[in-house]
């Protein structure tokens, strides 16, 4: 799944931007948890809040999720 386009961690995405998830660089445990909450490859993510410190708020479909900063480092988007 690691192609050239897919190298930006979610952490780098600014507030209000829309991106497409392309991979999760994490253990199977976290991958499956994120998948069950709708964060799978191909999902459209809108960053609602990114304060460059503290947790993130993203919108996936109609649902808002809080993601810890540690998690957002591992989510790769294009």
């Amino acid at each position: 799944m690691q192609n050239e386009k897919c190298q930006i961690p979610l952490t780098m995405v600014g507030e209000g931007e829309r991106v497409k998830l392309c991979g999760v660089n994490a253990g199977r445990c976290l991958q499956c948890r994120l998948a069950s909450m709708g964060l799978v490859a191909g999902a459209e993510i809108q960053v609602v809040r990114n304060s460059f410190r503290g947790p993130f708020v993203v919108k996936v479909g109609n649902c808002r999720l809080i993601l810890g900063r540690g998690v957002t480092h591992k989510i790769m988007v294009e």
């Binding site: 948890r33 909450m37 708020v57 808002r64 999720l65 809080i66 993601l67 810890g68 540690g70 998690v71």
Partner: peptide, 12 residues
């Protein structure tokens, strides 16, 4: 052990 990754839903 590292704290479990923080993932939580923000309900409407």
């Amino acid at each position: 052990g590292a704290s479990t990754p923080f993932v939580m839903e923000l309900p409407p």
